[in-house]
Design a protein around this nucleic acid. Structure first.
Lengths: 134, 134
DNA sequence: TTAAATGCAAAAAATTTGCAGACGT
DNA sequence: ACGTCTGCAAATTTTTTGCATTTAA
């Protein structure tokens, strides 16, 4: 069984061609905004409606297998949930990439200083990517 | 001269009662969404229009003395720019607080791993505040 | 067979714009 | 006096909703 189909099935959400395309797209490009997603899907699936994309993104977020990445000065993007990681975003070209950094130490410090019981973190670094730097 | 007036003046933006109220509001409550801001200001300044709030928030962001804080599962909030800091947000009551943590070590790690030249970070911890925990 | 998903159009929500009059410098 | 800001209404943009039809299980 295809990876994307398995993902939908295991989260108790109906497997439709539209949804498979959305998930496949997210496997391939990792971070996509609603309209990037919509346009990308329209190529493979011209009849899809924007409302369907919205409905599915919301459904998948409720089922907790994709999540929204809120990026400074950009539209939100969506990604499949995998192991915890942070993001770097290029302020020149807008590119977004994953970066794996252990945040347990800072999370511990945040708990001590804030007295909150922390269970998630979202860290986004803004800077200039190697391509734009050269 | 009032602190808020000085702030506007020093950023080359005209001092109006509406703007003073916006800045004062942000001094007092630290993190406010557009409509929290709008409603709060309406009390002191019933004639203010929502468009004015938007225009001013955008103007102040361009002048770089306030910034948007994008929070998971919530509307964006805005804050006056001060020394760098992170945020904790309570997933029960929605409260947002500052927490001061030194991120230079993780930023360095992000630079090494991503090869980006990092110059900003935005870190938000999600958890449960002491009040909601008890 | 049946509950859920799709696609459309319409509605609602969020944000921006244009412009005449008011106001700050 | 001049250029900017305000407030209103209208325009755009973004997201959600209702509903008839189709589709997955």
């Amino acid at each position: 069984m295809k990876h994307s189909e398995e993902l939908l099935r295991s989260h108790g959400i109906k497997v439709t061609p539209q949804r498979l395309t959305i998930v496949d797209e997210l496997y391939g490009r990792i971070h996509l905004s609603i309209d990037e997603l919509y346009m990308a899907i329209k190529e493979k699936f011209p009849s899809i409606s924007l409302a369907t994309v919205y409905k599915n993104i919301n459904a998948m977020m409720e089922k907790r297998f994709i999540k929204e990445v809120k990026i400074p000065n950009q539209k939100s993007r969506y990604e499949l949930i995998k192991e915890p990681h942070s993001h770097v975003v290029c302020q020149k070209c807008g590119k977004v990439e994953d970066v794996h950094i252990d945040l347990s130490t800072v999370a511990k410090e945040a708990m001590e200083k804030s007295r909150y019981h922390i269970n998630e973190d979202a860290l986004i670094f803004t800077g200039v990517c190697p391509e734009c730097a050269s």
